[in-house]
Each structure stands twice: as C-alpha cells, then as structure tokens.
C-alpha cells in the first residue's frame, strides 16, 4: 500500500497534466462550437506553441511565463491562417475531408518542425524550476502551482471575454445559431477566424506549460491533440464545464494508471474511457441530448 503522500504527489502530477488537456479541449470545443470543424492537428498547434516559447526563451532568456503570452499571440495568428487557407476551403465538403486535411497538417507541421529544429528533446527552464513548496512530508514544485494558476486565469479571462464583450457575445451567438447570428449582422467568417485564433492561442498556452513541466520534441503533440478530442467527447460536445472536468479527470486517470498498472496503459486508458462513455452515454458526461 502506497503512502498517502505518494498518492497526493500522483494527484498533483495528474492535476497539472489535466490542466494541459483542459486548455486544449476548451480551445477545441470553441472551434468546434463555432465552425463545427474537426481539427485533429490541434496537437501540432500546441507543439508550435511550445517551440515558439522555446525559441523566444532561448534568444531573450526572459521569464517563460511572460513569453507564454507572446506565444499565444503568434500561434493564434498562425491558427487564423490555417483556418483561412485550409479549413475554410473544405468547410461543407464533408467531415471526412476535414479529418483528412488535418491528418495532412499533422504530417506537415510535425515533420517540418523536425526538419527545422531536429527531434532532440528541448526544455524550457523556468526561474522557479528548482524551487518547491515544502509541506513537510510533501514537496510541490512552484511550476506546478503556477500551471494550475495560469490555467484558471486563462479560463476566467475567456469566460469574461465571452460573456462581457460584444465580440464574445457574437461568438457565442454564432456558436448557437449561424443563421440567426448572420441576420443580426455578425460576420460569420470573422467569427470563424476568431474562434480558430483563440483555440490556437489556448493550445499555445497548453504547449508552453507542458514544455516548462516536461521536456518536449516535435512529436509531443499528436497524441495530445487527439486526446483533447476524447476529452471533449467524454465531457460532452460543446460543454465547457464538461471539458474542464473531463480534462482534469483524464490527467488524473492517466497518472494513476501509470502508478497502478504501468506506463504501457497510459494512452490506452483514455480511449477505453472514451469507448465506455460512448456506449453508456453517447452525448458525454455533460452533453445535452440532441
């Protein structure tokens, strides 16, 4: 029987891993809500976020938590470009084309990154990397606490943006009903670009946090991106609270799986969960019945 401090420690690893899934899944949920588009390459956008932060950090050496915001902007713009010149072109030609396009993007973004930056593992050293909060029996690294704090901060800002600003409200209106939003004078194409931009920016934040916590290389994103889809299905399509709870849950389940059953099951358990949820409640834990 493991000691209780060990279990708390695993809980913290799981919670922070979950924060990364939450940021990914909330972004994806937004894109899906507004555009109904399926982007399996979301993980590659996360990886670009990690690399953007890495290079800015490498050349300037400033605090990576500050760089995270630069990375969000840069990658957000990149997301807009992908939307405008990629997904927009196949919009309405069938979901399969979107899936295949995103598979192509996975190959391109991942291998171009390997080509440009090699596949050596990289690390971003936060100034707090060797500092821990000493709770007697247990040490929690500052970076983990900051990761949780930043995730909360980003989610609250997003919530305020969506509920308190006109643009945010227009975005939500588009997500609920395209035609009605158009009639009210919302430029739907702008909303597409905006949602893709915000989703990509959230992925960049996720990538930066992931890169501070663990070493990474261009292969970091593929499984994470697809995992984020399982999160939004488990949580319920379109449900932001569902994505948050399912994301945290997945992080916890994965880390406890490593602890109790071994690393081989880490990724598999997510899909086992997905299949169970789809069999028992196909609309997800918090999804609405259609």
């Amino acid at each position: 029987m493991a000691e209780i401090t060990t279990l708390i420690q695993i809980f913290i690893w799981g919670l922070t891993a979950g924060c990364i899934y939450v940021l990914m899944a909330v972004g994806l949920n937004m894109i899906f809500g507004v555009m109904k588009v399926v982007n399996f390459a979301h993980g590659e956008i996360m990886m670009l976020g990690a690399f953007t932060s890495f290079w800015v950090y490498n050349y300037t050496g400033i605090n990576p938590y500050f760089i995270m915001f630069i990375s969000m902007i840069v990658v957000g713009i990149f997301g807009v470009i992908i939307e405008r010149y990629g997904f927009r072109k196949v919009l309405g030609t069938g979901k399969l084309n979107e899936i295949f396009l995103s598979l192509g993007l996975i190959y391109i973004i991942q291998n171009l990154s390997v080509k440009l930056w090699t596949d050596d593992i990289r690390k971003i050293n936060s100034p707090f990397s060797s500092m821990t909060l000493d709770l007697g029996m247990l040490n929690i690294t500052y970076d983990r606490l900051i990761a949780i704090g930043f995730t909360a901060l980003i989610l609250i800002s997003l919530y305020l943006f969506l509920t308190k600003t006109d643009v945010g409200r227009a975005l939500r209106a588009t997500s609920q009903n395209h035609e009605a939003a158009m009639l009210m004078g919302v430029n739907v194409n702008h909303m597409y670009m905006l949602s893709f931009g915000i989703g990509s920016a959230l992925a960049a934040a996720a990538g930066t946090i992931a890169a501070i916590l663990t070493p990474f290389n261009p292969y970091m994103g593929t499984i994470s991106g697809i995992m984020a889809f399982t999160v939004i299905i488990i949580g319920g399509l379109g449900s932001i609270p569902g994505a948050i709870i399912a994301g945290l849950m997945l992080g916890l389940v994965q880390n406890f799986t490593i602890f109790y059953f071994g690393g081989a099951w880490k990724d598999a358990v997510a899909f086992v969960l997905l299949i169970i949820v789809l069999i028992i409640k196909p609309t997800g834990l918090f999804g609405e019945e259609h």
């Binding site: 663990t214 970091m220 880390n255 602890f259 690393g263 081989a264």
Partner: peptide
C-alpha cells in the same frame, strides 16, 4: 516505460 515517454513523474513517484 514506452520508448517515446518524456514525462517520468508518476513512474519516479512510484
């Protein structure tokens, strides 16, 4: 651990 692993926290905690 699987060959592509980068996050060893849970393994090392165990």
């Amino acid at each position: 651990y699987p060959g592509a692993e980068t996050d060893f926290h849970a393994y090392l905690t165990k």
